[in-house]
Design a protein around this nucleic acid. Structure first.
Length: 410
RNA sequence: GGAGGCGUCGCUUAGCUGGCCCAUAGCGGAGGAUUGCUAAUCCUCUGUGCAGGAAUGCACGCGUGAGUUCGAAUCUCACCGCCUCCGCCA
């Protein structure tokens, strides 16, 4: 959510920024209109209340009259305020000035790191490798749950724990507080982070029937949401968390895309970085998050490219977003494995997360970034580290956590 | 799930026989004054919104929402949360 004052003062640029992101910018005009009506009604209501407050004990009749008069105007104000709030939620966070205006195809490749390995044999994809090693079981996932769920077994499970341990230790050493978060969150936290309301047809997450609870799509929701309505001291910032959680994605509407294997699934585990930062420092910290993500892929020794998203691909909350795409030999393509966003004060304003600077409260900035999406990291490792017989060499940095060097064919 | 207690402006806290509350005090924080000494003392400010260039004014605010009333932090109801005890359980 943006500051209404900011929208009033920058009507043109906010409208443009909204269109740039692929949203309907005409909402800004509507907001300005409703805001004027809203403020007019606020003025009227307050004038009557002021009158009412000045009445003495002997002016009971006058009080009764004002009470009735007030009621109708207050009802109007309620309606207008609700409309206003709904509209305000429809304005996305404008992109940062350095972000290219455009659609998905305009995303910039900033750099490519590492050379895709030349294989002397026909490469297998991660699912074939998972079958050969007995580590990825899709049929039983479907059997016990539904298509899009799966089992990770044996050394595959150990590999995931190794990845988790590796990433958590790295982040802990860098000053992030390791956290295991709830895997569900209420609607306030979900919407506050800029995700779609559950009533919205575009929603991407599961809802628990009869409860004010959704299954989280990322630990970002629980890590950011935990500090709703909190005011921090400026010296407490930056506050860095590394959260481990299950992530649930509804993925409705993406039928037919990436159906093979565990690239696009309903449930996976992820370690997510979330930082609460001073506004003046958020850009710097965004680059730090990007660097940490790159460091992880460099240490895993997997070729990747760094993408800077164009405006049309940023979504609701992000003002700037970098993705890392890892090389997937079976597809001969780079595929997304991480994403880091600076959401500036967009989430903080919705959730009432503030910082006191020089005795004044300001909305702080929130940032998030994938440390490791464990499933996708596993895919990248399987494919890039595969051997001719279908066994998988374990990346050097993970070997100590697995106490072995190879995942053998079963 | 049962029984009882509680929920006040960052933290602690007064008020809770309805109008004397434009909500008290302490801590923490900000600004200033003064004194040269590893600090002390004093003063002012420190919930949100609306109008205004500003001084300021007005309104809202005592978990949330509704209600009673001319008037509610204070009374009623519902909901949420916390604590204690009991039950159940990894």
């Amino acid at each position: 959510m943006l500051d209404i004052q900011f929208i009033r003062d920058n009507k043109e640029s906010v409208t443009k920024a909204t269109f740039d992101k692929g949203f309907d910018g005409s909402v800004v005009d509507k907001i300005i209109e409703v805001d004027i009506e809203r403020r007019k009604l606020i003025g009227e209501v307050e004038a009557i209340r002021a009158k009412k407050n000045k009445l003495g004990r002997d002016q009971i009749e006058e009080g009764r009259a004002l009470k009735i008069e007030l009621k109708t105007i207050e009802e109007n104000l309620n309606i207008v305020t609700n409309t206003f709030n709904d509209l305000m939620l429809k304005v996305p966070n404008p992109s940062a000035p350095d972000v290219k205006v455009g659609k998905e195809e305009d995303n910039e490749v900033i750099k490519q790191v590492g050379k895709p390995k030349e294989f002397s044999f026909p490469v297998r994809d991660h699912l074939d490798l998972g079958l050969l090693t007995g580590t990825i079981d899709m049929p039983n996932g479907t059997k016990v749950a539904q298509s899009g769920f799966y089992y990770i077994k044996g050394d595959g499970a150990l590999l995931e724990f190794a990845l988790m341990q590796y990433a958590m230790m790295k982040l802990a050493k860098k000053g992030f507080t390791p956290v295991i978060t709830p895997n569900v969150a209420n609607e306030k936290s979900v919407i506050g982070c800029g995700f779609q309301a559950r009533s919205d047809k575009e929603r991407q997450i599961y809802h628990i029937e009869g409860e004010d609870l959704d299954l989280i799509g990322t630990a970002e929701i629980t890590l950011v949401g935990q500090h709703a309505d909190t005011t921090f001291n400026e010296f407490d910032l930056p506050l860095k968390y590394a959260g481990y959680s299950y992530c649930y994605r509804y993925e409705k509407g993406s039928y037919g895309k990436d159906v093979r294997g565990i690239l696009r699934v309903h449930e996976f585990r992820k370690i997510e970085m979330v930082v609460f930062a001073l506004p003046s420092e958020s850009d710097k910290i965004h680059e730090e998050l990007r660097e940490i993500e790159e460091e992880i892929w460099q240490e895993l020794e997997i070729p990747y490219q760094l993408i800077k998203q164009a405006t049309g691909d940023l979504g609701n909350a992000a003002s700037r977003k970098y993705d890392i795409e890892a090389w997937m030999p079976s597809q001969a393509k780079y595929r997304e494995v991480t994403s880091t966003s600076n959401t500036t004060d967009f989430q903080a304003r919705r959730l009432g997360i503030k910082v006191k600077i020089k005795n004044e409260n300001h909305c702080l900035h929130t940032l998030n970034g994938t440390a490791l999406a464990l499933g996708r990291a596993m895919i990248a490792i399987y494919e890039n580290y595969q051997n001719e017989d279908g066994s998988i060499t374990i990346p050097q940095v993970l070997q100590k956590w697995m106490e072995k060097e190879v995942i053998p064919v079963k």
